[in-house]
Nucleic acid binder design. Structure first.
Lengths: 342, 342
DNA sequence: AATAAATATGTAAACGTTTCCTTCTTGTTT
DNA sequence: AAACAAGAAGGAAACGTTTACATATTTATT
């Protein structure tokens, strides 16, 4: 329809060189080597020619000769979890400042998917990767190591017995401890913990923190009040039903999907917080924003975590010999009105 | 520490060929051309050698000679919007089945960011793109067109005056019409609409639907009850305050961020739905799941939309000469308990 | 037995860049 | 005026693949 003269082949550096009446080397220098001195007039002429025929450098071709690929990846286990979405957004914006494009991937808690994703990323020869591993005892990072691709593990650490990695996450023990202490200080003694059956240590560490807090207040932890189940809202409902039946006065909702289910259970069964049960949620899921009374949440320094993960990775890319770092962040209480003082 | 013999250069097809005692062509055929017949034993030997030295094909290098790049992109305007997150997840899973890796990008409603992103994607010579344009009157797709990169526009259409594109979205007029009719049928007559000041036609079309429904029921639309404001929860709160002051009995919450703000306003001011105000939300934001009474929502066939967008793109990649398609989906009412019959 | 057809593998020229190194200008020093 | 240095640009070899084509081997056909 328009005046377009179908260029079957995409326009290359050669086309620009011909148009500008110069060599391909010069064109390459214009687009890739700011140091190299060229007569301003020549540089201008090349730019002009490129603009006219719509030249855009082929990143694949550059990367094959040059070393830098210009692509980072973030692989998360749950794309639906807004914590990860927020991390992704921040990481992307930092990476962009350094001229990287970021590929966002979702393993959906499936170690096999994760392996496939990492394999594809290695094939793309990405410059670096931030990985939040799927629930699993498997360590899929061998591929990255073999290809010397710098990476940072986010949020979920592998068991101590595994090889060391760059790591950024929250102190899960402290989260559990803090949540429980907050309830204990308000006078609660019969406190439930609901979490998630998971091979990853996060939830177990939170439970450890919960137990430690109880003991510190002279309460001996009751195994029946520590509930775990699969990762779903339905499971959250089930657990809520159970701990209500056990007659607790308070609960730590230790994982966001199951927490959502628990809250639905409360609302559907006319159970009010904090009158009927006091609540502390670990994390700050998106939906807490619309609930009243406001929920008391254990919040992580999300922005800081994203910045750290991104800069850790960028540093490691710039200097591959740098030592592995493990950065744990402490959480704080974001007070709402879901805890009743007894 | 381990027995690793630091391979400074990453392992290439040549290394495999040497190890397997064959030519590089054979190795290439093993990895890239399933048709080509090779003695099973030879094929096996190559695979074996590759596995031993940890060879992974360099996708960048393949793509420069071969045409297919193996990368698709999804560019959305609001990464925080769970509708888009859900679309992304589905699109990724479809694309993966066809062997594509998907780069997810967020323009954050900034046309300039969008341009930069598209430029980068063109530089990567992606095979195709699904784009939900940032709020803007600008059409950044020229870049994609010039480089003959197939693309599908998602959710937000450009004004009719623009060039035609592949398009998948909801029928916004119908959404607005449906939401309003639902309230009219319940007996409401004084109905507000809250939306978003936006250069994109989505909200305006919904308002048109709203007006058409009112007229059909003999109610003459009152300009004061159609509220728009910037895209934020605070704006949602403001608009809620205004339409409550105007004494409406019902409202259509036409955009999800502002809807969230409105709901916060209600809760903070002790306004109950459906007793004090009847509500219909256009869309099904994540947080509707935890609210009680349940909100009546206008839902789009999300799964279907994702499938259509992905297959439309894949078709267009396979056959670039295919005609442009415009696919509009009709929405349905997901009934909750937020509408009072009068 | 000679030839044709089919099978199996290898050679080498692309692909679009980057970058080392050479060449050509121009200006400065002697 | 000759010699040289610096400045500016280009030639051509890489990078890791793909693939058209050539070659070599085997099997089938006459």
């Amino acid at each position: 329809m328009t005046s377009s003269q179908k260029p079957r082949r995409s326009v290359t550096i050669k086309d620009v060189a011909k148009k500008a009446g110069t060599s391909i080397a010069t064109v390459s220098y214009v687009f890739s080597n700011a140091e190299r001195y060229l007569r301003p007039e020549l540089r201008e002429r090349v730019l002009q020619a490129a603009a006219e025929i719509g030249y855009v450098k082929n990143a694949a071709a550059s990367s094959i000769k040059g070393k830098r690929r210009g692509i980072l990846a973030v692989v998360v286990a749950q794309f639906g979890n807004t914590f990860f979405t927020r991390m992704c957004v921040e990481i992307v914006s930092i990476a962009r400042q350094e001229g990287y494009v970021v590929t966002l991937c979702n393993s959906d808690e499936d170690p096999e998917q994760e392996r496939i994703i990492l394999e594809r990323l290695v094939a793309q020869r990405i410059d670096g990767c931030i990985l939040c591993p799927a629930q699993s005892t498997e360590d899929n990072t061998a591929l990255l190591q073999r290809h010397r691709i710098p990476y940072v593990i986010l949020e979920r650490s592998f068991p101590e017995s595994f090889a060391p990695h760059n790591f950024v996450g929250q102190d899960n023990f402290q989260s559990g401890y803090l949540a429980t202490t907050h309830l204990l200080e308000a006078g609660h003694r019969r406190i439930a913990f609901s979490g998630w059956d998971s091979p990853i240590p996060n939830v177990r560490e939170r439970v450890d923190g919960y137990r430690a807090a109880l003991r510190e207040y002279g309460v001996s932890p009751n195994q029946e009040l520590v509930l775990t189940d699969e990762l779903s809202e339905a499971a959250g409902r089930r657990m809520a039903g159970k701990f209500l039946a056990a007659g607790v006065t308070a609960a730590v909702l230790g994982q966001h999907d199951t927490a959502k289910g628990a809250l639905q259970h409360f609302q559907d069964n006319n159970i009010h917080w904090p009158q009927d049960i006091s609540l502390v949620v670990v994390g700050t899921p998106e939906w807490t924003g619309v609930l009243r009374p406001r929920l008391t949440c254990i919040q992580r320094p999300e922005h800081q975590m994203a910045v750290t993960a991104a800069t850790m990775l960028l540093n490691n890319i710039k200097n591959p010999e740098v030592d592995l770092v493990k950065q744990l962040y402490t959480c704080t209480v974001a007070e709402g009105e879901s805890v009743l003082r007894m």
